[in-house]
Structure formats: structure tokens, C-alpha cells
């Protein structure tokens, strides 16, 4: 045992020089190198902060939904940087306030599909056999219905309000999450450390959710971020069709829809909400791309 003690003492001394870093820190370090991803994160942070403080700075009753007929359909000016709509409401304020709807619908919808689809995928991937077949085939059935169509069905059946919108958009992307989670679990499932955990007496539930799931985080996190972007688009589309957040709430999609009839003469009314959607989704997709690159095992030294 003398030899071994010498070995460990010197290796302890050497290890002190290294920073104790977790995988999360490694990912952040790679993420920072990607300029586009950092730009996306900055933009998204600004949008998130805006959406949080909008509630305190902007008064919903007087500044968002009150109609000011004398100021209707004004082009962008210093007083109204993005102009006003057909009821004389300031479009800039409405867009700033509207970020609350788009972001919350996008994020909550993805959380819904992550919770349902993720759990389904993990169980399918780990258990295999009949259980996997039942779960994945029913996902296939759902996936064969176009996401937007499915969301329209749910909102028409249960009524158009924000909560139903979140759930319907979420349910529509459950199959995608189940597939990603299942594929990720299947690559991790056969690793020796999973067998080791089984040999140590861990229960099936414990192996699935505390041993396998954290090792599948990379593809699931990328999928989650990417899906927030498409969930925002789906939610806006539904609002555009009048099935999402009901007016007069300033949801970006419904603002686009309202501006549609004025597009020939007052194109700014559709341009600014459209830009808001594009920038938000672009920022989220940039983050998603950056995350995917940062988590790519090929980049590890």
C-alpha cells in the first residue's frame, strides 16, 4: 500500500491546479465561442427583460387597449416610433407588451410537450418491447396530423384562450420530443455505467430518471430551444386565424391579422409585428444552433 499512497498524494497536488468544472461549465465555454449564439442570447435576454418589466411600466387599460380615434393610422413618427393602428393604439407599446404572450405561450407549450413527450420517450427507449411499440406507434399517429391542424382542432374544441393555446401548441409537438428522447436514451441505455447502476441495486425508475436522463440532456436541450421558436410561430399562426389569444390583447399574430386589411396603404402595421416574430424566433434558433455545437462531442478535446 506504500506505493499507492505516494501515487495519490502527488496526483492530489497536481489536481488542485485544475479548476473544478462540471459539464455545464464546459458547454458554456464552448457556447461563448460562437458569436451568433451569443448575439441570439443577448437579443433573447433583452426581449425577456422587456416582457417582464412591460407589466410594470406599461398600463394595459390606458396604453394598450384604449382606442384614441384622433390618432388613428398615423405613420411612424417621434411620438409613435412604430406608428398607430386603426384604433389609434401605439404599435411599439403593443409589440413590447405582446412579447409577454408570445414568450409565455412558446415556453409553456414547450414545457408541456417536454414533460409529456420526454417521459414517454424515456420510458419507450429504456423499456423497449411492447411498451415501446405502443408509445411510439401512437406518437406516429399523432405525428401524421399536421401540427397546426391538430392545434386548430384542440382550440376549436376547447375554446380560444391563452391556456388552451399553450396546451394545444404543446401537444402538437409531443411526438417530436418522444422521438428525440427515445433515440437519446437508446444510445445511453447500453453503457456500462447503466449496467453498473443496475448491479448496485438501483430501481428501474431511478435508472431511467437519475442515471439515463441527465446523460441525454444534450439533444433534449437543443430540441427544447429549437421548439420554443416553432411554438411561437404556431401560436402566432393560430392567433392570426383568430383561434389563439383573443383580441384586444396585443398578441403578435393577431396584430398581423388586424393589419392585414390595411397592408396596401399602411404596411408598417404588419411589418413591425412580423419583424418582432422573426427576430425572436431567429434569436432562439441561433441559441439552439450554438447549444447544439457546444454539446457536440466531436468538439471535445
Amino acid at each position: 500500500m506504500d506505493k499507492t499512497n505516494v501515487v495519490t498524494k502527488s496526483s492530489v497536488a497536481a489536481s488542485r491546479k485544475y479548476k473544478k468544472n462540471s459539464q455545464l461549465y464546459e458547454i458554456w465555454r464552448n457556447f461563448r465561442k460562437n458569436k451568433g449564439a451569443v448575439l441570439g442570447l443577448t437579443v433573447l435576454s433583452i426581449i425577456i427583460i422587456t416582457s417582464i418589466i412591460a407589466n410594470f411600466v406599461i398600463d394595459y387599460e390606458t396604453q394598450i387597449i384604449r382606442q384614441v380615434v384622433p390618432e388613428r393610422l398615423q405613420r411612424p413618427s417621434w411620438k409613435h416610433p412604430f406608428g398607430t393602428d386603426q384604433y389609434g393604439r401605439d404599435i411599439l407599446l403593443r409589440i413590447l407588451y405582446g412579447s409577454r404572450y408570445s414568450l409565455s405561450v412558446g415556453i409553456v407549450a414547450v414545457m408541456v410537450s417536454l414533460a409529456i413527450g420526454g417521459v414517454m420517450g424515456v420510458i419507450a427507449g429504456y423499456m423497449g418491447g411492447i411498451i415501446e411499440n405502443i408509445i411510439m406507434r401512437s406518437c406516429d399517429v399523432f405525428a401524421s396530423i399536421p401540427a397546426l391542424l391538430l392545434a386548430i382542432c384542440i382550440t376549436t374544441a376547447f375554446g380560444a384562450n391563452t391556456l388552451i393555446l399553450m396546451i394545444s401548441v404543446g401537444v402538437a409537438s409531443v411526438p417530436a420530443f418522444a422521438r428525440v428522447a427515445r433515440a437519446a436514451v437508446m444510445t445511453v441505455r447500453d453503457n456500462e455505467y447503466i449496467e453498473a447502476a443496475r448491479a448496485a441495486g438501483a430501481t428501474r425508475m431511478r435508472i431511467m430518471f437519475t442515471h439515463i436522463l441527465p446523460n441525454c440532456m444534450a439533444p433534449i436541450m437543443v430540441q427544447t430551444t429549437m421548439r420554443v421558436g416553432s411554438a411561437i410561430i404556431t401560436a402566432s399562426s393560430l392567433s392570426f386565424l383568430g383561434l389563439g389569444v383573443p383580441p384586444p390583447a396585443p398578441e403578435w399574430g393577431s396584430m398581423l391579422s388586424e393589419g392585414r386589411s390595411f397592408i396596401r396603404d399602411y404596411s408598417y402595421m404588419t411589418m413591425f409585428p412580423g419583424l418582432a416574430i422573426v427576430i425572436t424566433v431567429l434569436a432562439i434558433n441561433l441559441i439552439g444552433d450554438g447549444l447544439r455545437d457546444a454539446m457536440d462531442p466531436k468538439l471535445k478535446r
Partner: peptide, 23 residues
């Protein structure tokens, strides 16, 4: 599940893959 690890336990072949990288 109670016997594994308590009464019988196992050392695996490859130390590189037998530890969970996230813990």
C-alpha cells in the same frame, strides 16, 4: 434490487465507461 449491491456486487471491465459522466 435489494440483493444487488448489498449481497452481491460487481466490478466492471472497463473503468472508462463504468462511471456515470454526469455525477
Amino acid at each position: 434490487e435489494n440483493i444487488r449491491g448489498k449481497d452481491i456486487s460487481m466490478i466492471f471491465q472497463d473503468p472508462m465507461t463504468a462511471l456515470n459522466p454526469v455525477f
